[in-house]
Structures are given as structure tokens and as C-alpha cells.
Simulated scan of single mutants.
Amino acid sequence: MGEIILVVDDERAMVSMIRDALEDEGYQVLTAYDGESVWDLLNRKPDLILLDIMMPGLDGIQVCRWIRDSVSCPILFLSARREVEDRIEGLAVGGDDYITKPFSLEELVARVAAHLRRELRSPDQEKTVLRFGRLLIDLKACEVRYGDRLIPMTAKEFEVIRFLAMHTGQVFSREQIYEGVWGFGEGSDATVTEHIKKIRAKLGAVDPVTTYISTVWGIGYRWEKNDGPQALSATVYHPGTLDSRAERTGVPGIVGGLFFHLDATVSAGQLLRGKNPVDPSMGGSGRGCPPRPGDASPAGRDRSP
């Protein structure tokens, strides 16, 4: 077994009893006593969340609204509220079940097991939200949030974030980022530098501690892991960018002047045709989001060394 269950309730005695019952069944149990503590524990990727509604500060309904887009696991509400309207509200905000207090521990454990079995039968769904600590990147809505705070980004700024975050831990040169977001054509790689500068400023305004985009001197930029998902993709190195560190990693081949390392999902032909490894249907143009105010048209592109 060994699935991870997150129990959130301000009643410590209740949490203790639930934890003991679940651990007796072989589950790993994480505990929180207020809504504000949930975010840090989400990095442990719980398989199911037991969430009390009536808590001081952020109540269970608010917490569910807050985290539902970033977690796909079942959320089971625990509450002393027994009215039909309360049950409907809990299910409407994203809850998968509603258990009223007092309840039998045997029934609670049985419901937990039933929801986990249902998850095993459900086909995996494509992730539309990337989470790096408290930073959320909604690929479908083209939005970046820190907790419940929306960080305004232009369309091109978001596409730069999408390109890097979907390839967490991989290093891309300015030219590779330009071609992945703006596509092939006339333009300046300095456009990438300016966009990254603005992105860093906006992220730093809400989270001055975490480094999301780091500079790899002599090569380019990398999106740091920060407890977020790591997407499998292609790592591409332009001629002249390989140093001793890159050589030690073992680059398996050269195609058309590009040093490359590929996984099964991206072909060399896609790279040479300028296909965007984030979304092949976009053809590398970075048109996943509609234009927004502040997107500048890049000037004549300098391809000199």
C-alpha cells in the first residue's frame, strides 16, 4: 500500500485518531492543523486529502478552492455541518466526498480505500497546471499565480515561462528560447534577455527568496526544479556552447550542427524543422496564448557570433 494521505483538521485529538487508523492500514499520513499549512505539504504529492471545513483562518472550502486546480487527487471533506446545502457547496467547489461528524473510523478508512481504488482505475490525464512550491503555471488559462495571487504576464512572457518550465532543469541558449517561442525568422536574441529580466522582476516581487530562472554562464537559462514536475524533453546545445560539464554528460550525436540529446517524445526532425518541443502543434511559434498589451514585435535579428 503506502499511499500518502494528508489530514487537515484543527482538532488535534481528531487528527491523532485518524492518523492512527490510517497508519494501521499501511498508509503514510501527513498532518496539518490549519489551512495555511497545506501548501508546503502539497510538495509531498499526497494521494488523497481529508479536509475539515470548520477551521480558523482559511476554512476547508477556501482551501479546496485554493488548491483544486493544482492537485488532481481526491479531496474528502470532514464536517459537523449536516445540511444538504453544505454538502452541495463542498462538492461544488471540487470535493469528491462529504463525511459528516461524528463518523465511524471504519467507514472513513473504507471510503479512503474506495476513492484510492477509483483513482487506480481512472486513466491518467494530461497535466494542465504546473506547480513549483506556491507558484502555479496554468497552461490552459495562460496564467501564473503565486498562491491565490495572479501575476500579470504578457503573452510572450508566459510563453517563455511555459517553454522553460516544461523542461525543468534543462539549459537553453537565448537563440533556442527565441526559436521555441517566436519561431524562426528575423529578430534579436536580446529580446529573450529583456523578457527574462521582466519575468524575474515580476516573480521576485511576490517571491523574493526563490530563484525560478537561473543563468548558466556561457550557455543560457534554466528553470529550476523547486519541488516542481520535471518534464522529459530534448536538451539542445548549439555549437560552441559545450563545456567540460556538458561533455561529461555524454551527448549522443550531432544533427545539422546541433548537439542534441533526445528522449522518445521529440525527434531530431522536429528540432530541425523548428517544432516546439513543448507543444508540437504550435510549430515553435509560441502562439499558445492570444496577444496581450506589452508584447513587442522583435526587431531585426542579429545572428552574428
Rank of each mutant, 00 (worst) to 15 (best):
H238S: 14
R117G: 02
I18G: 05
H238Y: 15
S297G: 12
S297N: 12
I213G: 00
P277D: 05
G286Y: 01
W39D: 15
P291H: 04
D52R: 00
P102G: 03
G133P: 02
A165W: 00
T154K: 02
A201L: 10
V216A: 10
T211N: 12
D9H: 07
N43P: 04
I177M: 00
L136G: 07
L42D: 00
W182Y: 09
V266W: 10
R87I: 00
H261Q: 15
G274T: 07
G250S: 06
G300Q: 11
Y98W: 01
H238V: 11
V171D: 02
D9W: 01
V266N: 05
Q176K: 12
E157Y: 11
D9K: 04
D207E: 12
Y221Q: 04
Y237F: 14
R118Q: 15
P74T: 03
V8S: 03
A114G: 09
M166N: 13
K140A: 15
L22R: 03
A21H: 00
R68G: 00
E107M: 10
G95K: 06
G90L: 01
K225Y: 13
V8I: 06
R303D: 11
T211Y: 11
G218R: 09
K202M: 10
E186P: 09
E247N: 14
D9V: 00
V192N: 06
R303A: 12
E83P: 03
G256A: 12
G204K: 06
V63T: 01
G257L: 03
V38R: 05
E247P: 11
L108N: 05
L242K: 07
P152H: 12
L41S: 08
R303H: 14
A114D: 07
V181N: 08
P298W: 05
R134I: 02
L150V: 07
P123D: 10
L272Q: 09
D138R: 02
L242S: 05
H167E: 04
D189L: 13
V266M: 09
I49N: 08
I99A: 06
W66P: 11
K156S: 11
P280R: 08
A80V: 04
Y98M: 02
M1P: 14
G60P: 03
L41C: 06
V112G: 02
S304W: 10
N43H: 11
L150F: 08
L42P: 06
T168G: 11
G133F: 01
S285H: 14
I18E: 03
W39L: 13
E194G: 13
A32F: 08
L51N: 06
M14I: 03
R82P: 05
P252D: 12
Y146D: 03
W223M: 00
W39Q: 14
L108F: 07
K101M: 03
